[in-house]
Amino acid sequence: MIPDTTRTTDAPDVSGVPAVLRVQDLVVTYGRHRAVDGVGFAVAPGESYAVVGESGCGKTTLARTVLGLLRPAAGEVALEGVRLDQARGRDLRALRRRVQIVFQNPFAALNPRMTVARLVDEPLRLAQPGLTAAGRAEAVSALLASVGLADRFLGRRPHELSGGQCQRVAIARALAMDPVLLVLDEPTSALDVSVQAQVLNLLADLRQRRGLAYLLISHDLGVVRHLADRIGVMSAGRLVEEGPAQEVLSAPAADYTRALIAAVPGRGRAALVGGAGAATASGPGAPGSTGSSQ
Rank of each mutant, 00 (worst) to 15 (best):
Gly164Cys: 03
Gln208Glu: 15
Leu216Asn: 01
Gly135Thr: 06
Arg209Asp: 09
Leu203Cys: 02
Val102Arg: 04
Thr9Ser: 13
Asp229Lys: 01
Ala73Gly: 12
Gly53Asn: 05
Ala286Cys: 08
Arg7Thr: 12
Arg98Gly: 08
Ile101Lys: 05
Gly16Thr: 07
Leu69Cys: 05
Leu181His: 07
Asp178Gly: 10
Arg156Ala: 15
Ala133Val: 14
Arg152Gly: 13
Leu149Glu: 08
Val180Pro: 04
Arg225Met: 12
Leu126Phe: 15
Gly275Asp: 00
Ser146Gln: 14
Gly274Asn: 00
Ala176Thr: 01
Glu242Asn: 11
Ile171Met: 08
Ile171Phe: 09
Ser162Leu: 06
Arg269Leu: 09
Tyr30Lys: 10
Gly164Glu: 05
Ala253Asn: 12
Thr8Gln: 14
Glu242Arg: 13
Thr132Arg: 05
Pro106Arg: 01
Asn111Gln: 07
Ser282Ile: 12
Ala276Gln: 13
Asp37Ala: 06
Cys57Trp: 12
Val180Cys: 07
Leu143Ala: 03
Ala278Cys: 03
Glu47Trp: 11
Ala263Arg: 02
Val140Tyr: 00
Ser141Val: 06
Ile2Tyr: 07
Arg64Thr: 03
Asp185Met: 02
Gly56His: 10
Arg90Thr: 14
Gln294Gly: 14
Leu110Ala: 10
Ala286Ile: 06
Asp4Leu: 15
Ala134Glu: 15
Gly288Met: 13
Pro158Met: 03
Gly58Arg: 11
Val39His: 04
Gly164Leu: 03
Ala63Pro: 07
Gln196Gly: 02
Gly16Glu: 10
Ser48Val: 11
Gln86Pro: 06
Arg93Asp: 15
Pro18Asp: 10
Arg207Met: 08
Ala109Asn: 02
Leu191Val: 01
Val264Cys: 08
Thr9Met: 13
Leu191Gln: 01
Ser289Thr: 06
Val39Trp: 02
Gly38Asp: 00
Ser162Phe: 04
Ala262His: 12
